[in-house]
Computed example of a mutant assay.
Amino acid sequence: MGRERGGSSGRRRPATSSGGPISLTGRGGIVVMFGAGVVCGLLSRWFGVPLLAGGGFAAGCALAAFATRPADLLTLVVSPPLVFLAATFTVVLATALGDGSLLRAVTVGVLTALASTAPWLFFGTVLVVVICLARGLRTNVRELRDKLAGVRLFEKEENENPVRWDESPATTRERRLHHGDVD
């Protein structure tokens, strides 16, 4: 009865915290980096352009750093090395299928790919850190440090005096016997 028609429906589109039209979670940013690394790595192997693998990963890192919401920047900053390894392993595994020895092809392929694209991994990681620092990473680190300090203080209070006596000092004085008295 009390509903107004034609007004707002009560559902509002959530505002993004980054101010842009797209805001990814930390996991979404990791998926963007992984996807860019795999797609560009496959294209690099198929077309024989080694720069494409590293450049694509760095571009994916930059895109993820700009599109991830500020609350999840800490998650994003620590993930490029592991994402790079996973993307490289995926690309090498996909291109090594059908070769003679899969184990040998994957081992040699991953080590070779990591050695040849290591500067791109470093560049992508630094790029993510610089962009995230400009977007508010220091706030996330400060909040994490405060949470960890609060946890340590709580544990210190809890374990401050691990020995608890059930008897009060007054009852222990009454129970003390003289050295000559026997119980």
Rank of each mutant, 00 (worst) to 15 (best):
T25M: 09
G26R: 03
G26P: 02
G26A: 04
R27L: 15
G29P: 08
G29F: 01
I30A: 12
I30D: 07
V31Y: 05
M33K: 05
M33C: 08
F34C: 07
G35I: 06
A36M: 03
V38H: 00
V39P: 03
C40T: 10
G41L: 00
G41T: 02
L42N: 06
R45W: 06
W46Y: 13
G48L: 08
V49Y: 11
P50F: 07
L51T: 04
L52I: 01
G54L: 02
G56C: 04
F57I: 14
A58Y: 00
A59C: 11
G60S: 05
G60Q: 00
G60K: 01
C61W: 00
C61L: 03
A62I: 13
L63R: 00
A64V: 06
A65P: 03
F66R: 09
F66V: 08
A67S: 15
T68I: 08
P70I: 00
D72N: 14
L74A: 08
T75I: 12
T75K: 04
V77K: 02
V83W: 02
L85G: 09
L85H: 09
A87T: 05
A87S: 14
T88C: 11
F89N: 09
V92T: 08
V92L: 03
T95G: 02
T95W: 01
G98R: 15
D99F: 08
D99S: 15
G100V: 08
G100M: 07
L102G: 00
L102S: 01
R104M: 05
A105Q: 05
A105G: 10
V106T: 10
T107Q: 15
V108G: 12
V108D: 15
G109E: 02
V110I: 15
L111V: 12
L114Q: 11
S116R: 15
S116M: 10
S116C: 09
A118H: 11
W120M: 09
L121E: 00
F122L: 11
G124W: 00
G124S: 07
V126Q: 09
V129F: 01
I131S: 02
C132P: 00
L133M: 09
L133S: 07
L133Y: 07
A134L: 15
R135G: 03
R135D: 03
G136P: 02
G136K: 04
N140H: 11
V141I: 11
R142C: 11
R142F: 14
R145Q: 13
R145F: 06
R145P: 03
D146F: 04
D146G: 06
K147N: 12
K147W: 13
A149R: 07
G150T: 04
V151A: 09
R152W: 10
L153Q: 10
F154A: 15
F154W: 13
E155H: 12
E160Q: 15
E160W: 10
N161L: 13
N161Q: 10
P162V: 09
V163R: 13
V163I: 09
R164V: 09
W165A: 10
W165P: 04
D166Y: 08
S168V: 09
S168T: 14
S168Q: 15
S168N: 12
P169F: 11
